[in-house]
């Protein structure tokens, strides 16, 4: 089983040199810590920044410079600032190469639910609906099961949807899974020490297991 940093580390391996990447809140934010230093990767923040840098040193926080999670950040050399309409313009126009976000549920046809629990949680979708509707390359970072022990990889989402037919890949503490265009969760990799049987038991949707399933290289 991987911890949150393990999930982030594995996802970081999906990032390629020259990518513009949008990282969601939670585990996706941790991915930034594991992008190899010799890679040129630009992080996009949907409030209007390309070139997110590390958190500022204590005393150097700038209230005018925050990321989409409203955290104080710095800007790397070569950063650019723009308004929120342009920010989603570049997302819609598919200029951002990779979107990594969290989810509460993903279905075997690539639907994602991540923004609302009726009667319980009213927070809003933020930029998630725009991102999943436009991005061509979407990786979901999440736990395989929820706190009640129920699978989050389902035949059909039960919660209100964020977007449809959009998730391409899921990385959890147990596995790397591709969502096939024709439907189904195709098991690609197992987390170290996790058996196919364990993954099967934690996956409510259709899990496709073919051939040898290698252990993840973290």
């Amino acid at each position: 089983m991987l911890d949150k940093d393990g999930i982030a580390k594995r996802i970081a391996r999906e990032i390629k040199d020259g990518y513009y990447v949008n990282l969601g809140i939670g585990i996706p934010t941790l991915v930034a810590n594991y992008i190899p230093g010799d890679m040129d990767v630009v992080l996009q923040s949907e409030n209007g920044l390309l070139g997110i840098g590390p958190f500022p040193y204590e005393g150097e926080e700038d209230p005018d410079t925050i990321n989409a999670g409203k955290q104080t950040v710095t800007m790397l050399p070569g950063s650019a600032i723009f308004d929120s309409a342009m920010s989603f313009g570049m997302i819609r126009a598919k200029k951002v190469n990779l979107t990594i976000l969290g989810a509460m549920e993903v279905s075997e046809n690539g639907d994602i639910a991540s923004w609302k629990i009726p009667g319980k949680m009213v927070k809003g979708m933020g930029g998630a609906m725009d991102l999943v509707a436009s991005a061509e390359n979407i990786i979901v970072a999440m736990q395989h099961v929820n706190k009640a022990g129920e699978s989050k990889l389902l035949p059909k989402c039960t919660l209100p949807l964020t977007g449809i037919h959009c998730v391409k890949k899921i990385v959890t503490e147990m596995a790397v899974i591709d969502v096939l265009p024709e439907g189904g969760f195709k098991l690609r990799e197992r987390a170290p020490g996790v058996s196919i049987e364990q993954i099967k038991n934690a996956t409510a949707g259709k899990l496709i297991v073919e051939g040898q399933i290698p252990e993840m290289i973290i």
């Binding site: 949907e46 308004d83 929120s84 309409a85 920010s87 989603f88 313009g89 997302i91 819609r92 009213v122 809003g124 979708m125 933020g126 930029g127 998630a128 609906m129 725009d130």
Partner: peptide, 15 residues
């Protein structure tokens, strides 16, 4: 009352 609007839609409806 609340109307929740995707962030990009919100910005672009202003634009």
């Amino acid at each position: 009352e609340v109307e929740l609007v995707p962030q990009g839609t919100l910005a672009t409806r202003c634009m």
